[in-house]
Simulated assay, not measured.
Amino acid sequence: MKNREIELNKKMMIVSETNEKGIITYANNDFCSIAGFSKEELIGKPHSLVRHQDMPKAAFEDLWKTVKAGKIWNGIVKNRTKNGGFYWVNATAYPSKTRNGEIRYISVRVKPTKEEIEKAEKLYKTMK
């Protein structure tokens, strides 16, 4: 299973929510089934739990800078699964507020195209 790619199907939509420190407060069923973690294993953990080592730190620095500025971030991200595999997503992250007025971040991820993945792989190699 290690280094095996898990491909999202077109109908899947991974949704998660974190607090302003990046700690997961919500994970939908698609997130759990793709990443291989249970909701209990995800909730309360940093979202970096699914960060793949191939992803350059600069990509996440850009994501955090963007959402903390109140803007929407979009990019192609390689995440890791619990068993050491990986999956690519077209991710959109944005800030929101809870009913209590606390800042939270919501991320929605869908299947990227082959072209988007190839472009991202080339770009990330230049950023490492």
Rank of each mutant, 00 (worst) to 15 (best):
K2F: 12
K2V: 11
N3V: 02
R4Y: 14
I6M: 10
I6E: 14
E7D: 01
N9D: 10
K10H: 01
K10V: 00
K10C: 02
K11S: 09
M12Y: 03
I14E: 00
I14M: 09
S16A: 04
T18L: 01
T18S: 05
N19Q: 09
N19K: 05
K21Y: 09
G22S: 08
I24P: 06
T25S: 14
Y26A: 07
A27S: 13
N28M: 03
F31G: 04
F31W: 13
C32D: 03
C32V: 04
C32Y: 06
A35D: 08
A35E: 09
F37V: 10
K39E: 15
K39L: 04
E41C: 06
E41L: 05
L42E: 07
I43P: 12
G44M: 07
P46N: 12
P46C: 07
P46T: 11
H47G: 00
S48N: 14
L49Q: 07
H52D: 13
H52W: 04
M55S: 08
A58K: 13
A59I: 15
A59D: 08
A59T: 14
A59N: 08
A59H: 06
F60H: 04
F60T: 14
F60V: 07
F60P: 04
E61L: 13
D62E: 15
L63S: 06
K65A: 14
K68C: 13
K68S: 08
A69T: 00
G70F: 13
K71A: 12
K71Y: 08
K71R: 10
K71T: 07
I72S: 02
I72H: 03
I72V: 15
N74Q: 15
G75P: 06
I76M: 00
I76H: 02
I76V: 14
V77D: 05
N79E: 00
R80Q: 14
T81N: 10
K82M: 08
N83T: 14
N83S: 15
G84T: 06
G85C: 12
G85P: 11
F86M: 01
W88T: 13
V89S: 10
V89N: 10
V89R: 09
T92P: 02
T92L: 02
T92F: 00
A93H: 00
Y94K: 06
K97P: 10
T98P: 07
N100K: 15
G101D: 03
E102G: 00
E102T: 03
I103Q: 12
R104D: 03
R104G: 09
R104C: 14
R104T: 15
I106H: 01
S107Y: 02
S107N: 08
V108P: 07
R109D: 07
V110M: 10
K111Y: 05
P112L: 08
T113M: 03
K114H: 05
E115V: 13
E116L: 02
I117Q: 06
I117M: 05
I117H: 13
E118L: 11
K119V: 14
A120H: 02
A120R: 09
A120Y: 01
K122F: 09
L123R: 13
K125A: 15
K125Q: 14
T126Y: 11
T126C: 03
T126H: 11
M127C: 05
M127I: 13
K128E: 13
K128I: 13
K128H: 12
